[in-house]
Computed example of a mutant assay.
Amino acid sequence: MRTKDEAKRHAIREAAIAAVVAGGLGGASIAEIAKRAGLSQGTIYLYFSGKDELFDAVFLDVKREIHARLMAAAHAGGSAKEAIRGMWLALFDHASERPADFAFAEHLSAARMLDGRASPEIDAMAQEVAQIIEQAVLSGTLVDLPTQTLSALLSGPALQMARRSVVRKEPPSKDELDLAFEAIWRGIAR
């Protein structure tokens, strides 16, 4: 039996991301991913049973990285506003530094919404973010709205701006980010 190699797994991950970003989910075949990774299709099947398992694994990897970054920013100290602002800005940092990862996650997130697939790990990540927002409501920092509503009000503009920056290959300026966050914050702050 052949052993698995982390360098090959990483090459498969990067090739899957590049294939999805270049051609969408439908255009990213195992053959295309293998070609981009410089590996045989058989090698990919040594790591993953098929395209769905591969995409799910890469999606979880990317989401873990983004989530770790958001949580590090949230727990960096300070007020509830500083924690939420830190998470908001961490999303842009990640999108700027890893635009292909961000675009891949967007493709998979949209597909998962359409087919209704859920992941306990992704749900747990969302719950961790929700707890930060809930604490801000309980402390009187944010208006008393449902957590999902506050999350949508915060994340919607951030995701849209991050998408735009990835597509245009031009991140928003610090001033633009600060202005946008403050405008959103004024709408939800108590």
Rank of each mutant, 00 (worst) to 15 (best):
R36T: 10
E170Q: 15
G140R: 07
L89Q: 14
E14S: 12
E65N: 02
D93T: 15
E182G: 06
R98Q: 11
A110D: 13
L25I: 13
I84G: 08
M113L: 15
D93M: 06
A76S: 12
R168Q: 11
H107M: 11
L179Y: 09
A130S: 15
G140H: 07
K174T: 15
A189I: 02
L70A: 09
S173L: 05
A57V: 08
Q131I: 09
S119C: 05
R2C: 00
L39C: 12
I17H: 05
K8V: 05
A152H: 01
A152T: 06
L154W: 02
A124P: 07
F48P: 13
F48N: 07
L54T: 03
K169A: 14
D115S: 11
L154P: 00
R85C: 02
A83G: 05
G86W: 04
A110I: 12
E176Y: 07
A189F: 02
A18V: 03
L138C: 07
W185Y: 11
F59T: 10
E82L: 13
A126N: 10
K4C: 07
I66H: 04
R98E: 10
E32C: 01
S151L: 04
A158Y: 00
A110S: 14
A76H: 03
P157H: 09
S173V: 07
A100Y: 11
A130F: 00
I44P: 04
L179M: 06
R2V: 10
D175P: 00
A19H: 05
D123K: 14
V129R: 14
D56T: 10
V21I: 11
R13Y: 05
Y47L: 02
S165M: 13
D61I: 04
T149R: 02
H67Q: 07
A74R: 06
R13H: 05
R9Q: 07
R2A: 11
H107W: 14
W88D: 09
P157C: 08
F55M: 08
L46S: 06
S96K: 14
A19N: 03
T141K: 11
Q131N: 03
K63P: 01
L177A: 12
A100D: 15
E65D: 12
A80E: 11
T149P: 00
R190Q: 12
K63C: 01
H10I: 07
E82K: 09
I188C: 06
T147E: 08
I17S: 08
G23R: 15
T141H: 09
E14N: 10
G116R: 12
A80V: 03
E121P: 12
A183W: 05
A68W: 04
A34F: 14
K4E: 08
Y45D: 01
E106Y: 02
T43C: 04
L60F: 02
R164E: 13
D178S: 09
G116Q: 06
P120N: 12
F92I: 10
I133D: 00
A15M: 06
I122P: 08
I188W: 01
A100P: 07
E65T: 07
P120G: 15
L150I: 13
Q127D: 05
E121F: 11
